[in-house]
Amino acid sequence: MGRVLRNVFVGACVVLWLVPLWLMVVNAFTASTEYSGSPDWTFQGFAIFDNLSTAWDEARIGEGFGSSLLYAVVCAAAAVLVAAMASFAVVVLPIPRPAFWFWLIFSGTMFPLQMFLAPLFGMYADANLYDTRMGLMLVYVAWAIPFAFFLIRNQMTTMPPELTEAAMLDGASFRRIFWRIHVPLLAPGLGAAFIFQFTAVWNELLFGITLSRSPEVQPVMATLTALNNAYASTGPPVILAGTLIVSLPTLIVFLVFRGLFLRGLTVSAR
């Protein structure tokens, strides 16, 4: 009975996830001139390429696409590297009060992003970082570090301390121990953390629309809002087509690296 209820629950969750996805895909194929104003449940045409072209031109998604790819790859990689170093310091290095440092870094995940907007905006305006790629990259790296630190630190605590002790007896420095022992063994956790942060930075909107305004600087989610501003001239099918475009990178990353992602989650959850 328990298995049946579990399967029913899982099936219901799958349906709840697939229904809006189905509606998005179906209505993205509808021509804007033929859209009735209410969602269609079946395909009413094949205007997907026209809608994609309009979304690409109206919102200048191409520029935002390149910017988001830069932000997601570089910022996620930098955040994972810093988080790995911080995890090594908290777990392996003989620093005082490691629990305090853990909670201090991890507390970055506990506060809503909205509370940072006003001080960040003022600080960025004073430092000439507003509407610059460097400004967005700095905030994305800082935002991505705490959760990556949580995942990597959890995996690092499962590594036997005898590895570090044996390396130290052989005369290895902490730097060598980190790069030659811990980083290779942490590969699944590092990969999972990177995928998480890549997805988070790619899908981020709040900082993108608050700390930038130029199409060549704004991330793709912020440029996509231009379609909403031009709602009357483009129509929902074009907006949905643009949504399909910007959803592809995270889907591709997950499908290509799903094995590494699952191994990393399994190890980090121990």
Rank of each mutant, 00 (worst) to 15 (best):
A241K: 11
Y124A: 01
F198C: 01
R133K: 08
I195C: 05
P98L: 14
V15K: 09
A144H: 05
G208Y: 07
P20C: 12
A84M: 00
A232E: 04
T243H: 02
A78N: 01
F150N: 09
T210F: 04
L69N: 02
L163S: 02
F106H: 11
G66I: 05
W179A: 08
L255A: 14
T30V: 14
A28H: 05
T109S: 11
T223D: 01
Q114P: 08
F174P: 06
A222S: 15
S173D: 03
S36V: 11
T54Q: 15
E162D: 03
I245T: 06
R133F: 00
I177R: 01
A193H: 01
R270K: 08
P119S: 08
L248T: 00
S212L: 12
L186C: 09
R133A: 00
L21T: 07
W56H: 07
V91I: 02
V19T: 09
L136Q: 05
N154T: 10
L69P: 00
L104N: 04
S38T: 13
A144Q: 07
S87E: 08
A127K: 13
A78K: 01
S87D: 08
F261V: 03
L251S: 10
W202S: 00
F178E: 00
L185Y: 02
P161N: 11
F100N: 06
S32H: 02
M159R: 01
G242Y: 09
G208C: 09
F49G: 01
P146D: 07
V141G: 02
V25C: 09
A77Q: 05
S67I: 04
I177M: 09
V183D: 00
R60Q: 13
L16F: 14
L205H: 04
L206A: 13
N128R: 09
T157L: 13
Q197R: 15
F102A: 06
A84W: 00
N154A: 14
Q155K: 04
S68L: 00
S68N: 05
S173K: 07
A72Y: 05
A118L: 15
S36C: 04
A86M: 14
V217L: 01
Y124K: 04
A148Y: 05
V201Q: 03
A84E: 00
G259E: 10
A172K: 07
L69Y: 00
T234Q: 04
M115I: 13
A79N: 07
D50C: 10
G66K: 02
M137E: 03
F111V: 10
A84C: 00
A83R: 03
R153S: 06
T164G: 15
I48V: 15
R175Q: 08
G122P: 06
M137N: 06
L248M: 01
P184C: 12
S36G: 05
W17H: 14
T33I: 13
F29Y: 13
D170V: 04
T266Q: 03
A47H: 12
F102G: 00
A166D: 14
F88P: 02
L117M: 11
S247T: 08
P119N: 08
P112Y: 15
A125G: 12
L16C: 12
D40L: 07
R97S: 09
Q44A: 10
G66L: 09
V92L: 11
L52D: 02
A99R: 15
L151H: 05
I177W: 07
F100W: 09
Q114N: 10
S173R: 09
G45I: 15
A47N: 04
A125L: 15
V74E: 02
